[in-house]
Amino acid sequence: MKGVCLSLFVSLVFFQALNLANGQARLFWCVPLPGVPDAQLQANLDYACGRPDVDCGPIQPGGACYEPNTVASHAAFAMNLYYQIHGTRADCDFSGTANFTNTDPSYGACKYVNAIGGKL
């Protein structure tokens, strides 16, 4: 099983490098799974925004991502930012309540960060 996982990992890294070399970067954002209860999303939001390296200013009143003023919207922004800063697959888990998307969740003036390779 370890050999299969290692082969898969090497293949994914090679594929990503090939995409980058061809100018076709595959971008991913970390977002909550559908149907996650607000209480869990609030816990995710509190965790991400409680980190000193995560700037949750855009989801504060007057910020570009404040509207819609929902726990789900604010959690999505914070969870993605946390993942983009820390950049490992495990950083987009949030106790099994998040997953990756290749569809940019940005809207209007609210721009979700995406850093290829994770680190900003």
Score class of each variant (00 low, 15 high):
M1L: 14
K2G: 15
K2N: 13
S7F: 06
F9K: 05
S11Q: 06
F14C: 03
F15C: 03
L18D: 00
L20M: 14
A21W: 15
A21V: 07
N22A: 12
N22I: 03
Q24C: 04
L27H: 13
W29Y: 15
V31C: 04
P32N: 07
L33E: 10
L33P: 02
L33I: 12
P34V: 10
P34W: 11
G35N: 14
P37A: 14
A39S: 11
A39V: 06
Q40D: 12
Q42W: 05
N44D: 13
N44A: 14
Y47W: 09
C49H: 00
D55N: 15
D55R: 12
C56N: 02
C56L: 04
P58L: 05
Q60A: 13
Q60E: 12
P61H: 09
G62A: 10
G62L: 08
G63K: 09
A64E: 11
A64I: 04
A64D: 11
N69E: 00
T70V: 02
V71F: 05
H74Q: 06
H74I: 02
F77D: 05
F77A: 04
F77M: 05
N80Y: 09
N80G: 08
L81Q: 11
L81T: 12
Y82Q: 08
Y82R: 08
Y83H: 14
I85P: 02
I85F: 04
G87V: 11
T88P: 02
A90R: 14
A90G: 12
D91N: 15
D91E: 14
C92L: 09
C92W: 10
D93P: 06
S95C: 00
S95R: 11
G96F: 08
T97S: 12
T97A: 10
A98N: 09
N99D: 13
N99S: 13
F100Y: 15
T101H: 11
T103S: 07
P105Q: 02
A109H: 00
K111V: 11
K111D: 05
V113M: 09
I116D: 01
G117W: 02
